[in-house]
Simulated assay, not measured.
Amino acid sequence: MPHLSSAIRTGSLLFLSGQLAFDDKGRISGDIEAQTALTLKHQFAVLAQHGLSPENVVKVGVWLTDRANFQRFDQTFARVFGAHRPTRSTVISQLALEGALVEIDLIASFEPLDS
């Protein structure tokens, strides 16, 4: 188990550590769409543990291993988030674990969002 917290609250904000697309057996597999959807599903479960939903997300940090995956990642991200459009940074980078194509962290607010 890595030396980190899955989420830490400070004031009205909840910071979620980066997540990868681990399946139920602890493996990472699948294409960029599958990994993006599963990673966000994991993050949304952490939000729910704190009484929050995807609409509470204000900032998303994304690491992709391949620039060629950006468009398919973005389409999946848009489908999963729906009408909600949090701020986002996306970086092309190596990831620590073999087979990981995307890592995503979140910042969410406990207060209502201004649009």
Results as ranks from 00 to 15, higher is better:
Val62Gln: 04
Ser109Gly: 06
Leu64Arg: 07
Asn56Leu: 01
Pro86Thr: 13
Leu14Gly: 11
Arg85Tyr: 02
His3Asn: 15
Asp74Lys: 14
Ala108Thr: 11
Gly11Trp: 09
Phe15Val: 14
Gly99Phe: 04
Phe15His: 15
Leu64Ile: 13
Gln43Asn: 13
Ser93Met: 06
Asp114Pro: 01
Trp63Glu: 02
Phe70Val: 09
Ala45Tyr: 04
Ala108Trp: 10
Gln71His: 08
Leu40Ser: 01
His3Val: 14
Ala45Val: 13
Leu97Pro: 00
Val46Met: 11
Arg72Tyr: 04
Ala68Ile: 05
Arg88Tyr: 15
Lys59Cys: 05
Thr36Asp: 00
Ile28Val: 15
Ala48Asp: 11
Leu20Glu: 14
Ala68Asn: 13
Ala48Gly: 09
Ile92Glu: 09
Phe110Thr: 05
Lys25Asp: 09
Gly51Leu: 06
Thr65Ser: 15
Arg67Ser: 07
Asp105Gln: 08
Asp114Leu: 06
Asp66Glu: 14
Gln43Val: 00
Leu4Gly: 06
Leu52Arg: 05
Gly11Val: 11
Gly26Ala: 13
Arg72Trp: 02
His42Ser: 08
Ser115Trp: 05
Glu55Thr: 15
Leu4Pro: 00
Asp24Glu: 14
Gly11His: 09
Leu40Lys: 01
Thr39Asp: 00
Val62Ala: 08
Gly18Cys: 07
His84Asp: 10
Phe73Pro: 05
Ala108Val: 12
Arg79Met: 07
Ser115Cys: 06
Arg72Glu: 03
Ser115Pro: 06
Val91Asp: 06
Lys25Thr: 11
Lys59Glu: 07
Trp63Ala: 03
Glu98Cys: 01
Leu97His: 03
Leu95Asp: 01
Phe77Ser: 01
Ala21Phe: 00
Arg88Thr: 10
Ala37Met: 02
His42Asp: 03
Arg85Val: 15
Thr39Val: 02
Ala83Phe: 03
His84Glu: 10
Ser89Ala: 11
His42Gln: 09
Ala108Ser: 12
Ala37Tyr: 01
Ala34Pro: 00
Glu103Asn: 06
Gly99Asp: 15
Gly11Gln: 09
Asp31Thr: 07
Lys25Tyr: 12
Ser93His: 04
Arg88Ile: 13
Leu95Thr: 03
His42Thr: 08
Gly30Ile: 10
Ala96Gln: 13
Glu111Trp: 03
Ser115Gln: 09
Gly99Asn: 15
Thr87Val: 00
Leu16Arg: 04
Gly11Ile: 12
Ser93Gly: 04
Glu98Ile: 03
Ala83Thr: 12
Val60Ala: 02
Val62Lys: 03
Ser5Lys: 08
Ala21Val: 06
Leu38Glu: 06
Ala48Cys: 04
Leu40Gln: 01
Leu64Cys: 11
Arg27Met: 13
Asp105Glu: 10
